[in-house]
């Protein structure tokens, strides 16, 4: 019971920190980009730029993570094959 309350508290703390970070990031980008656009529809260019930047970090990380994973797996498989020979 105590453990789950602790976990819940920790997860809320983590959520709060992440949200705070997201707000800080958007505040860094927002003013300089926002001034360049006029109509509300073009707001989506600002939004996709900022969300895209955040998404790109995850995309790049996942890309290299899977590459690395494949490399390690490939190496392991090769070693196992050589061992069995």
């Amino acid at each position: 019971m105590k453990m789950s309350t602790m976990n819940k508290r920790q997860s809320w703390k983590l959520k709060f920190i992440l949200i705070l970070q997201a707000c800080l990031i958007s505040n860094l980008f927002f003013p300089s980009i926002a001034f360049a656009y006029v109509d509300p529809g073009s707001g989506s260019v600002i939004v996709t730029t900022i969300l895209g930047l955040i998404a790109a970090v995850g995309y790049t990380f996942r890309k290299y993570f899977y590459k690395l994973k494949r490399m390690i797996r490939g190496k392991k498989a090769k070693e196992e094959q050589q061992d069995s020979e």
């Binding site: 996709t48 730029t49 895209g52 998404a55 995850g58």
Partner: peptide, 12 residues
Amino acid sequence: PRLQSKAMVVGL
């Protein structure tokens, strides 16, 4: 117009 890389667009 802001240039958006493939990683940004596909990542989104």
